[in-house]
C-alpha cells in the first residue's frame, strides 16, 4: 500500500514542477502583453488568459490528450498533463504577477526613467525585484494549489499518486487508508513549502518595509 503511494510521488512532483516551470515561462509574455500599453497585445493576452481560466483544467487535459498530435504521434498523457496544467498556470500566474507589478508605485517607474534608465534596465533592476517580493506569497500559494491540481492528471492516466492509490483501492478493495496516506503526502509537501515561503517573506519585508 505504501509502495503504491510512493511510486506515484515522482510523477506528482514531476507534473507539478514541469507545469510550474512552463506556467512561469508562459506567464511572462502574457504579462508583457498586458503591460505593453498596446491595445491589440493587451486584448490578445486578455483573451488567452480568460480562455485558459474559463475552462476547467480537467477539460483542458482531455483536449490536449486527445487533440494534440505531434506528427503522427499523440501527446503522451504526461505531456498533455504538463502542457494543460502549464498553460492554465501561465494564465493565473500572469494575473498574480500583474497585481504585483501594479503594487509597485508609479514613482519607481518615474525615478528610473528620470535617471535615464532603459526600459530593460528599469524592469530588471527596479521593478521586477520589487514586484517579485510582492508576488512570492501568491506564487507559492499557487504552486501548492498546483501540487494538488496535479492529481487531475490521473484522469488521463498519468500514473501519479492519486492514480496509483485508485488502482490500489480498486484491486484490493481497500481504499480509505491508501487515500489517507496520499492526503498525508500532499500535506507533508505543501506545509513546509508554505512555511518556507512565509519565512522568506518575513525576512524580506523586515529588511525592506515599504
Amino acid at each position: 500500500m505504501l509502495h503504491a503511494v510512493l511510486t506515484g510521488i515522482p510523477l506528482t512532483l514531476g507534473v507539478t514542477a514541469a507545469a510550474l516551470i512552463i506556467g512561469t515561462l508562459v506567464s511572462l509574455p502574457l504579462l508583457a502583453c498586458t503591460l505593453s500599453g498596446n491595445r491589440l497585445l493587451w486584448l490578445g493576452a486578455r483573451m488567452v488568459i480568460d480562455l485558459l481560466r474559463g475552462v476547467p483544467i480537467v477539460v483542458w487535459l482531455f483536449i490536449f490528450y486527445y487533440g494534440v498530435t505531434l506528427g503522427s504521434a499523440k501527446l503522451s498523457a504526461f505531456g498533455a498533463a504538463v502542457l494543460g496544467l502549464g498553460l492554465v498556470s501561465g494564465a493565473y500566474l500572469a494575473e498574480i504577477f500583474r497585481g504585483a507589478v501594479s503594487s509597485v508605485s508609479a514613482g519607481q517607474f518615474e525615478a528610473g526613467r528620470a535617471l535615464g534608465m532603459t526600459s530593460r534596465g528599469l524592469w530588471a533592476d527596479i521593478i521586477a525585484p520589487q514586484a517579485w517580493r510582492v508576488a512570492l506569497p501568491g506564487y507559492t500559494t499557487y504552486g501548492i494549489g498546483l501540487l494538488k491540481d496535479s492529481s487531475i492528471a490521473s484522469t488521463i492516466g498519468v500514473a501519479e499518486m492519486v492514480f496509483q492509490a485508485g488502482n490500489f483501492a480498486r484491486t484490493t478493495g481497500n481504499g480509505i487508508v491508501v487515500f489517507l496516506l496520499a492526503a498525508a503526502v500532499y500535506i507533508l509537501v505543501s506545509v513546509p513549502v508554505g512555511i518556507l515561503s512565509r519565512r522568506v517573506d518575513e525576512r524580506m519585508s523586515a529588511v525592506v518595509a515599504r
Binding site: G107, A111, A114, L115, T118, Q130, R210
Partner: peptide
C-alpha cells in the same frame, strides 16, 4: 529616437516630492 530621449534625460536630474528612492 530612444537614443535622443536618453541623451536628453542624461542632461537632467530630477528630485521628486516623494523622493522615490529604490526601497529594495
Amino acid at each position: 529616437s530612444k537614443r535622443q530621449l536618453y541623451a536628453l534625460r542624461r542632461e537632467t536630474g530630477m528630485v521628486f516630492q516623494h523622493f522615490n528612492l529604490f526601497p529594495h
